[in-house]
């Protein structure tokens, strides 16, 4: 049952990634990336990491993708002109590095298969959203609140700098 679920989501993730690469319209690319993110979120769920699942959905699929779409649409960059790459060696290099990454991950994956990680109850407990949330409100209370202020400052900064530009 788990294997079937895994195969389906993995397939969706790969299809999403490939479609993102080949589609000529930047908005379509972004939407395919969204599909890919969602599929990966489900994979996290299968790995019993519910916290990563929610983070993947809210932060990546939610916030970051919306930002991407905004920028793409604001800049009117949805249509790609066929300009030749200015840096000629970029493509072969990317291919080479990609292959190297694939090889490494296969080697590590095979090595890991002979030595499976221990099923750890503690580890699952540790990544439990409830535990993490509790930590934020107990041990990490001060950093949590300071972060809030940093975000406030950033918001003020955006407003301040924008007002100035408009007035002149």
């Amino acid at each position: 049952m788990e294997l079937i679920l895994f195969l389906i989501t993995a397939l969706i993730a790969i299809v999403g990634a490939v479609a993102m690469l080949v589609s000529r319209n930047a908005v379509h690319s972004a939407l395919f990336l969204l599909l890919n993110f969602a599929a990966i979120a489900v994979l996290f769920l299968l790995l019993q990491a519910p916290f990563l699942f929610t983070i993947q959905l809210t932060v990546y699929a939610g916030a970051i993708m919306v930002l991407f779409l905004f920028v793409v649409m604001l800049l009117g960059a949805e249509k790609v002109e066929d300009t030749p790459d200015r840096i000629a060696w970029q493509q072969p290099l990317a291919l080479l590095l990609g292959l190297a990454l694939l090889v490494v991950s296969v080697v590590v994956g095979l090595g890991g298969a002979t030595n499976p990680p221990p099923e750890s109850e503690a580890l699952i407990q540790f990544s439990d959203p409830r535990t993490l949330g509790a930590l934020l409100f107990t041990d990490y209370l001060l950093p949590f609140e300071v972060t809030g202020f940093i975000l406030l400052i950033a918001v003020i900064g955006v407003v301040v700098l924008n007002q100035r530009g408009r007035k002149i």
């Binding site: 950093p143 300071v146 972060t147 940093i150 400052i153 950033a154 003020i156 900064g157 301040v160 700098l161």
Partner: peptide, 13 residues
């Protein structure tokens, strides 16, 4: 780290 960031982000602005 948060202290440094509070100071820096304010100073960027």
């Amino acid at each position: 780290f948060l202290g440094i960031e509070t100071l820096s982000i304010t100073l960027y602005i």
